[in-house]
Write a protein that binds this DNA or RNA. Structure first.
Length: 492
RNA sequence: GGGGGCGUAGCUCAGCCGGUAGAGCAGCGGCCUUUUAAGCCGUAGGUCGCAGGUUCGACCCCUGCCGCCCUCACCA
């Protein structure tokens, strides 16, 4: 017998079948949302309605039983009285807490004024073979909550609410870009060359074509091909995959928003980001931009602070020149950073991250990043060592990344080739020549943006861990994992 | 990968100095027509994460392993 199934529930299941009833019928009388009868409840007294949902714990008084019925909109008490349910009464114990039911009855109240559906007809909609978690603690074990999210969702209202909020956030992000006449598009997840970010990819294989493929680490290079193609304003909200560690702010697959707008530069995109946050503040946070995240208050209502990358670097690392490899190395050692096998620009950025990022409570735009760590961004006309790029930080966390897109195909090819000089497993093994070719056909000046939707949701819902905004975060499997061979021949 | 913490009944948790497993809720049987953490009486439920070791005796001490959480590292 499967672990966790109570034997008596199987007996109940048999009893239902023995009585000639289907414990898993295809259809039952459909009802209305619970919340819809709770509004103006007094005026509805005496109405007959049908409600469908999951039963809570039954409070049994012999000839009278109470239980709450929960659907996604809310919950209401249901009263089962022998005198109103003569036909059903002998079968009543076949329905237990956590079963899914359809109840028809008359709206009324109890002596204490509790809104109650006084049942006149009860239909078992689906038999639950496992009980719900204990009623007032719910499911609290973190691991169980992630592994059995389906239980977490019906047992913990706050969990349900935060995933509803996530859905609303994504909807409003779409609404914002749609309102600006952007086109939502979909680009390949399976890519022969990975690019658009620096990250280790997941590798896979296509059998029929006999081809190695990568799960995308970013949609960037495909979206910009669409800008070349004249689509002018595009965005994509989709999953990207990075074969890296997990932490409270990293999940190996996560959701990225990327948008590209022709004829815009990074200043315009900065305004778009502020517009997006104003929109989200109005639609998701009900007008107040204040959120609590990791026990600190943040005001997400724009405008945001702004600071130049190199100025912040200089503030925290006085008399260290970002471009002076020797000085940077000395500083990195002083900070206890790993300096071996690091490209000069990577090390310099490590120093930035070690000394500056935690100070960026924000929201703050950090802008004008060095070109060496910005291979896809356009250089500043006044200073070719620096690019028209900004990142948005809140709570020391990188939320977004944007720049004036590099559209000079020759510069682009040289930067790709420069990357290969410091090649590591985060660098593609080859230059994406097709992307360079696309640029050769001419890409209008454009501003692009990437925002991590999961981190945005963390912030807007006050969730300290990314796993609280990802429905099914990646976990190890519990049984002995078979050797990860292509054919998976190992028996569990 | 390093450090710290955790893992006991379906759920939430106790379990002392090493002496042989406990409670509440859920379940089952019974009483009860206004409860809402219902109540009362009775009952059942355990590979104490896994595997070794020490010991007359291990949930407890030791070693290894597995899983989760936090943290550091890694991660533009």
């Amino acid at each position: 017998m499967t672990d966790g199934i109570a034997n008596d529930r199987l007996e109940k299941l048999q009893a239902v079948r023995a009585a000639g009833q289907d414990p898993f019928p295809a259809r039952v009388p459909r009802g209305q949302p619970v919340a819809s009868v709770l509004t103006d409840f007094d005026a509805r007294t005496g109405q007959t309605v049908t409600l469908c949902g999951r039963l809570g714990q039954i409070r049994d008084f012999g000839k009278l039983r109470f239980a709450h019925l929960q659907d996604r909109s809310g919950s209401i008490q249901v009263g089962f009285q022998r005198e109103r349910l003569a036909a059903f009464w002998p079968d009543r114990k076949r329905i237990e807490g956590n079963d899914l039911v359809s109840v028809t009855g008359e709206l009324g109240t109890t002596q204490k004024g509790e809104p109650t559906l006084w049942a006149t007809d009860v239909v078992l909609a689906s038999k639950a073979l496992r009980p719900a978690p204990e009623k007032w603690h719910g499911l609290t074990d973190t691991e169980q909550r992630y592994r059995m999210r389906y239980v977490d969702l019906f047992a913990n209202g706050a969990v349900r609410d935060s995933f509803v909020r996530r859905s609303h956030i994504v909807r409003e992000v779409r609404a914002y870009f749609d309102s600006l006449d952007y086109l939502e598009v979909e680009t390949p997840i399976l890519q022969p060359i990975f690019g658009g970010a620096a990250a280790r990819p997941f590798r896979t294989h296509h059998n029929a074509l006999g081809m190695e493929l990568f799960l995308r680490i970013a949609p960037e290079l495909y979206l910009k091909r669409l800008i070349v193609g004249g689509m002018e304003r595009v965005y994509e909200i989709g999953r990207v995959f990075r074969n890296e560690g997990v932490s409270t702010r990293h999940n190996p697959e996560f959701t990225m928003l990327e948008s590209y707008e022709a004829w815009a530069d990074y200043r315009d995109i900065m305004a778009r980001v502020e517009g997006l946050f104003a929109h989200l503040t109005a639609k998701v946070l009900a007008g107040d931009g204040k959120v609590t995240f990791r026990e600190r208050q943040y005001d997400l209502a724009p405008p945001f602070q702004k600071a130049r990358y190199l100025d912040l670097f200089a503030q925290q690392n006085p008399s260290v020149d970002w471009f002076d490899h020797g000085a940077v190395t000395r500083r990195a050692r002083e900070l206890g950073l790993e300096t071996k096998d690091k490209a000069p620009h990577t090390l310099a950025n490590d120093v930035f991250e070690a000394t500056v990022e935690d100070t960026l409570q924000g929201p703050i735009f950090v802008y004008d990043y060095p070109v060496a760590i910005s291979p896809l961004a356009k250089r500043l006309a006044e200073d070719p060592r620096v690019t028209e790029r900004f990142e948005l930080f809140v709570a020391g966390m990188e939320l977004g990344n944007a720049f004036s897109e590099l559209n000079d195909p020759i510069d682009q090819q040289q930067r790709f080739e420069a990357q290969l000089l410091h090649k590591d497993d985060e660098t593609p093994g080859e230059v994406d020549l097709d992307y360079v070719t696309a640029l050769e056909f001419g890409m209008p000046p454009a501003g692009g943006l990437g925002i991590g939707i999961d981190r945005l949701c963390m912030l807007l819902s006050g969730s300290a861990s990314i796993r609280d905004v990802v429905l099914f975060p990646l976990l190890r499997r519990l049984d002995a994992a078979p050797a990860a061979d292509a054919d998976g021949a190992t028996q569990p």
